[in-house]
Design a protein around this nucleic acid. Structure first.
Lengths: 200, 200
DNA sequence: CGTCAACTGAACTTACGGTACAGTCAACTC
DNA sequence: GAGTTGACTGTACCGTAAGTTCAGTTGACG
């Protein structure tokens, strides 16, 4: 059995992504985790601590996922452009193969409920996104060195585009109730990257 | 002076985008609109009616904006590809020129608070996004006829990409607290469209 | 037996959504 | 200028649901 803290976070994540943070009650989380309301407060000192833990865990997971996935892609090709194209394909497949679709992004959810949280949490979110920008920017910079882009391109904006397309895709997927949208959008981004850098 | 209903919607929109729907109280809206709680219920029978009105108004505004903007673009060029490129540029400028930045998308906000609303509201959201898909799909189809794309492309996915990039950009913009991100992202999409269709 | 983590269960406080309704007041209609 | 209507105010009230606190229980382990 997983430890209770993890169970709470799992339950809370799903609920928060479906209804928002404020609308997710501690009672409801506790009930689903088979503990009492008091038990919840043994693990988290207040509701804000839950939010912080939720976000920290999400960011750590996402970072690990990107690490693994693009490391794997780099194993499959030594060329930075090909590795990026492979990585994006793997990412699209991974998202599409999730049993119930990707549940949504905790950071996007938080972005639309900003004022509920303290500035520490906002900083956390900000840094996560800046981290992804830097990660992909570096990868694109390496590509651009070997394959000069056909159009002058702001590499920060291009780095952001990965996050942007994922976030946008998840919103459409949720709002439409259609599976596979996010993967499709990533494949469009991939198509852009290929056109932008590849020779001919 | 604007009529009270509009004032309520304006205030509620900002508040909901900042804190989420559940966390926005009727009391607070009424106070900001300088009316009593009773006054609020004169205009909206309950909180759900407010949500619906908020979303309906947002969709109508967005539709009108797209209508105007791409009609204008079409006036400036008869060529469908050029018109699209002009339209995207205009869109990016419009978003960047907003006095306090774009406040965020009500539909994205709703997407992450789905379970709060009845299925009617979900249908509303769904149809709005399907409408934008159809709108842009048609435009891309016309472009593709004259300029066969360099890569085989799913026109629905391409149509969705406009919404996706806007939504994603808005999330980054909010989470980072940086202006201009959404405009940049749209310019990236524009760059993709140009590479995908243009001869040369 | 003592300790400690992991809880339980009840109590407390506040806030919110919603209802009901009597009354006000300015603007328009006949 | 009497009457009507739309747009409210203000107050009182209800139910309940939510966050938080805490004293006390339980069971495993040394």
């Amino acid at each position: 059995m997983a430890d209770t803290r993890t169970v709470i976070l799992d339950i809370a994540e799903v609920a928060v992504l479906e209804k928002g943070f404020e609308a997710t009650s501690i009672e409801e989380i506790a009930a689903a985790a088979d503990i009492s309301r008091g038990g919840f407060f043994y693990h988290f000192k207040d509701k804000n601590a839950l939010a912080r833990a939720l976000i920290e865990r999400y960011i750590a997971n996402e970072d690990r996922l990107y690490d693994d996935l693009f490391a794997r892609a780099r194993e499959l090709s030594d060329d930075p452009l090909h590795a990026m194209l492979i990585g994006l394909k793997l990412l699209a497949e991974l998202l599409d193969d999730m049993p119930n679709g990707h549940p949504g992004c905790v950071i996007a959810s938080a972005a639309y409920q900003d004022r509920l949280f303290d500035s520490g949490i906002r900083t956390l979110n900000r840094n996560a996104i800046l981290g992804w920008r830097a990660r992909f920017r570096a990868m694109f910079a390496e590509i651009a060195e070997r394959y000069p882009p056909h159009t002058e391109t702001d590499l920060d904006a291009l780095g952001d585009m990965v996050s942007s397309v994922v976030e946008g895709g998840l919103i459409l997927e949720r709002a439409l109730g259609e599976r596979g949208i996010t993967g499709q959008q990533i494949m469009q981004l991939r198509s852009y990257i290929r056109l932008l850098f590849s020779t001919r």
